[in-house]
Nucleic acid binder design. Structure first.
Length: 606
DNA sequence: TGCGGAATTG
DNA sequence: CAATTCCGCA
């Protein structure tokens, strides 16, 4: 249970909004939740529950109190806090676990997106429909980190790219090997203070991770960084799919997956994440090939394990991706590649395989439910009755927020419909997803397969992986114009993974495509996948967001999925579910944990 | 309990 | 923007 991970916590710079002035970083609720979750001290108030990234708030009031303290909002209460939490639903950062009180679930994908903007979650999205990243579907492209800056958040000139102030500091610290400095003494919440983590505690992967993300600081060369961290080759099983037993927190390992970035190469103008400006500095990383290789290796591993997008390391064909280490599959995986292939790295980097620039918005549109009608605004003013209950902590918030200002005049304004930004357009497509959404928790993030009803997936428990892999691939190709064959094949081959159907990987025959596609030409396959993927995303998103039902036809496949194990309330034991969902879940939780860990690790200093 | 709209805030 | 605050609805 408790592991070193607990030891420190702090927020990495990226956890804050870059835009905000240096001194004013404000913590976001989910960060805070994550923070609490990883600290045992607070296990009585909030703790992970199950394997899904779910957590339960055992003591809502206390959590609210803490939150209020942190934000200097003495008036905070669970009601409000929960509103904020709910607010995350739309952002897809969180979900409510239905049926369980005070239980919510993190949407891993989103988190990753937010935290690791560089990572390409596209595949994840596809494989994990539910949380498919909001992408302007109009383009038809799949989600990927666009080279261009997202308009919604960034200024058009892409200036943000250049201002990595934040990151720089991180880099510096990393370089130093220690993470501790929080210049601004915002450490208000003393309650949370933690022990600093020594650099030594960090796992190599993490370090690697971090370093990868570091901007090319003038003074720090990546070399030095890497050197410092000496990223070791990925362990054979970096992320054991250990079933996170009830006590979920694993050691703070960071998944390389998270860390990965898709394109280290220089010219990639990376798009910063929507909500967070991505720290990508000048937008160029310069790592030495070796380092990159290692890193990528690790990433690959994780990709496999977590079934993240391979796109993440597209440009390094020489890297061999280890086979997933599922115990069950005896395939030759590990041998093949656990460690990097010693191929020479030719990184030519190519590039940009991502032609499609589009921005993804973290906060997609709320969707449909909204414009219902316009009720008369007549409201009466309420007077804040004094709720005094919480006065304790937080003396620092000196200014009591004034209350009492309210007046609203707008009455009966024109019905305004919020038009959601494109991003969710896809959502427009409606699909009928069975109601799985209900307990679906699984569906969401972690159990994509079911969600999209791909029957194919269900068949073999183990197969999941395969499917996932496929999903991964698809991502790769999703790009519209993407030149699948060329680059892809190269990569696939080089990597030795992807494309199960293709080259090697006869495995259980990739079931995924409806029509059994193993032998289909790549291109075709991709195409197919792509569409499927899109559909999936749409579905999942749709399904979740709105239960719209229309339905997109879908050629053959769509069938009700067999009922999956149903975890009853408490009954769910992560381990037990290992079957189909298990893998995904586990994966996710690991990721989550890692993310959490990452959060914490970065700056314990505060 | 939980949801989500609407207005407000910093 | 991300809450915070308030509230009506299930």
């Amino acid at each position: 249970m408790k592991t070193a991970g607990d030891s420190g916590f702090a927020f990495p710079e990226w956890a804050y909004k870059p835009e905000s002035s240096p001194g004013s970083r404000q913590i976001q609720l989910w960060h805070f939740i994550l923070e609490l979750l990883r600290k045992e001290e607070y296990h009585d108030v909030i703790a992970w529950q199950g394997d899904y990234g779910e957590f339960v708030i055992k003591d809502p009031d206390e959590v609210a109190r803490l939150w209020g303290a942190r934000k200097c909002k003495p008036q905070m209460n669970y009601d409000k806090l929960s509103r904020a939490l709910r607010y995350y639903y739309n952002k897809r950062i969180l979900h409510k676990t239905k049926g369980k009180r005070f239980t919510y679930k993190f949407n891993f994908n989103k988190l990753v997106l937010v935290n690791y903007p560089f990572i390409d979650m596209g595949s994840a999205g596809s494989s994990v429909p539910q949380s498919a990243p909001p992408v302007p579907s109009g383009v038809g492209t799949h989600f990927r980190f666009p080279p261009s800056t997202p308009s919604d958040v960034l200024s058009p000139n892409g200036e943000e790219l250049r201002s990595p102030g934040v990151f720089a500091s991180v880099a510096r610290r990393a370089a130093r090997g220690s993470v501790s400095d929080c210049s601004d003494g915002t450490s208000v919440a003393s309650e949370l203070e933690e022990v600093g983590i020594s650099a030594s505690d960090e796992r190599p992967a993490e370090r690697a991770f971090r370093s990868l993300f570091l901007p090319h600081h003038p003074r720090l060369t990546h070399d030095s960084l890497f050197r410092m961290y000496g990223v070791p080759p990925p362990a054979p099983v970096p992320f054991p799919a250990s079933p996170l037993p009830g006590g979920p927190l694993l050691p703070p390992q960071l998944s390389p997956a998270l860390s990965m970035t898709s394109t280290p190469t220089s010219h990639l103008p990376y798009t910063p994440s929507p909500s967070l400006a991505s720290p990508m500095p000048g937008s160029r990383f310069s790592f030495s090939p070796e380092d990159m290789k290692r890193y990528l290796q690790a990433h690959a591993q994780s990709v496999y394990n977590y079934h993240l997008s391979p796109r993440a390391f597209p440009h390094y064909p020489s890297i061999v991706v280890p086979q997933p280490q599922r115990p069950d599959k005896g395939l030759a995986g590990p041998a093949a590649g656990t460690h990097f292939a010693a191929h020479p790295l030719h990184h030519q980097q190519p590039e940009e395989l991502h032609p499609s620039p589009f921005k993804f918005k973290l906060q997609p549109p709320p969707l449909g439910r909204k414009h219902r009608d316009v009720p008369p605004p007549s409201a009466a003013g309420h007077v804040p009755s004094g709720t005094a209950s919480t006065g304790l902590f937080v003396g620092e918030c000196g200014s009591a927020t004034g209350q009492g200002s309210n007046s609203n005049s707008g009455s009966g304004g024109p019905p305004k419909i919020k038009v959601e930004p494109v991003s969710d357009i896809e959502s427009e497509e409606e699909v009928e997803v069975t109601d799985i959404s209900e307990d679906d928790d699984n569906c969401d993030v972690f159990a994509p397969s079911h969600c999209n009803g791909g029957p194919a997936l269900l068949p073999c428990p183990d197969g999941i992986i395969d499917n996932e892999e496929e999903d991964l691939e698809e991502d790769v190709f999703k790009t519209p114009a993407a030149p699948p064959s060329g680059s892809v094949s190269g990569m696939a081959i080089g990597v030795g993974m992807t494309l199960p159907g293709l080259k090697a990987e006869p495995r259980e025959g990739s079931p995924s495509s409806p029509g059994g596609t193993q032998c289909i030409p790549l291109k075709l396959r991709f195409k197919r996948r792509w569409s499927e993927d899109q559909r999936m995303e749409a579905e999942s998103e749709e399904a979740e967001d709105k239960k719209s039902r229309a339905e997109k036809e879908e050629p053959s496949a769509r069938e009700a999925q067999p009922q999956r194990v149903q975890p009853n309330d408490e009954g769910r034991s992560p381990v037990s579910l290992a079957a189909p969902l298990g893998a995904g879940q586990r994966r996710v939780s690991s990721e989550l944990q890692k993310a959490t860990a990452q959060l914490s690790l970065e700056n314990n200093g505060c």
